[in-house]
C-alpha cells in the first residue's frame, strides 16, 4: 500500500474519531470554539507523529528483541507523557507565538486516547517505518478535521434549540453521529 493511501485511509475513510470513537472526551469538551478546536487538533497531530515514531523505535528495537512486549503499554504511555512534557517546555521557550496557539492544550494531550491508540494500532498493524509516519500523520489530520468540523457545526447551534433533555453533550454526540454517517460515504472511495 502506498503511503498516500495510508494517509488518506486513516484521515478520511477510517477516521480515528468517527470510525474508531477515539479521542471522544476532548472531541466533546473542546469543540465549543473553532480556535480552540483547531489548536487542539494541531497539537494532537504534532504530538501523535512524534510519539508514534519514538514508540516505533522503542517497540521494534528494544521491547521485541528483549521479549518485553508485555510492557508496551507502560513504555508507550511513559514516553508519551515525557515527550509531551518536553514539547511543552520547548515550545514555550523557543516558539512563544506557537505556544499561544496550541501550547495550552499540551498538558491535556497525555490522556487523549488518540495518541496512545495510534501507537497501539501501529503495533497491531505492523507498519514499516514510513508507514508508521504516514499512519500517525493521517490519524492526527483526520482527528483535526473531525474536531474542527464539529466546532464549525456547534457554532450554528447557537441559533437553534435542540431537544432540551439532550443537553450540551448530547447534541454534540448526535452531531458526531451525523458526521460519522457522512464519512461513511467515503468508505467506497479507496479500495
Amino acid at each position: 500500500m502506498s503511503l498516500a493511501l495510508i494517509v488518506l485511509a486513516s484521515a478520511i475513510t477510517n477516521n480515528i474519531a468517527l470510525t474508531y470513537f477515539l479521542g471522544m472526551c476532548p472531541f466533546i469538551a473542546i469543540s465549543k470554539s473553532l480556535r480552540g478546536a483547531a489548536g487542539m487538533g494541531l497539537a494532537v497531530t504534532v504530538v501523535v507523529v512524534i510519539t508514534t515514531t519514538v514508540n516505533y523505535f522503542a517497540y521494534r528495537f528494544v521491547l521485541v528483541p528483549l521479549r518485553l512486549e508485555f510492557l508496551a503499554f507502560v513504555v508507550f504511555i511513559m514516553s508519551i507523557a515525557g515527550i509531551v512534557q518536553m514539547l511543552e517546555i520547548l515550545v514555550e521557550r523557543y516558539f512563544p507565538s506557537l505556544y499561544s496557539i496550541f501550547g495550552i492544550f499540551l498538558p491535556l494531550i497525555t490522556v487523549n486516547c488518540v495518541i496512545l491508540a495510534v501507537s497501539l494500532f501501529m503495533v497491531l498493524r505492523e507498519y514499516t517505518f514510513w508507514g508508521t509516519v504516514a499512519y500517525s500523520f493521517g490519524s492526527g489530520l483526520g482527528w483535526m478535521i473531525a474536531i474542527t468540523a464539529m466546532a464549525g457545526l456547534r457554532k450554528h447551534l447557537a441559533f437553534s434549540s435542540p431537544v432540551k433533555n439532550l443537553g450540551d453533550a448530547g447534541i454534540t454526540i448526535v452531531l458526531a453521529g451525523l458526521m460519522a454517517l457522512a464519512f461513511l460515504g467515503f468508505q467506497g472511495m479507496l479500495a
Binding site: F21, N165, G170, I173, V174, G177, L178, L184
Partner: peptide, 22 residues
C-alpha cells in the same frame, strides 16, 4: 454496530437519563 448508530443510540439514552433525572 457501526459508528453512526452507536452515537445516535448513546444520544437517545442520554435523553432518557436526563428525563428520569429531572
Amino acid at each position: 454496530s457501526i459508528a453512526p448508530g452507536a452515537f445516535f443510540l448513546l444520544a437517545s439514552i442520554i435523553i432518557v437519563f436526563n428525563m428520569l433525572k429531572r
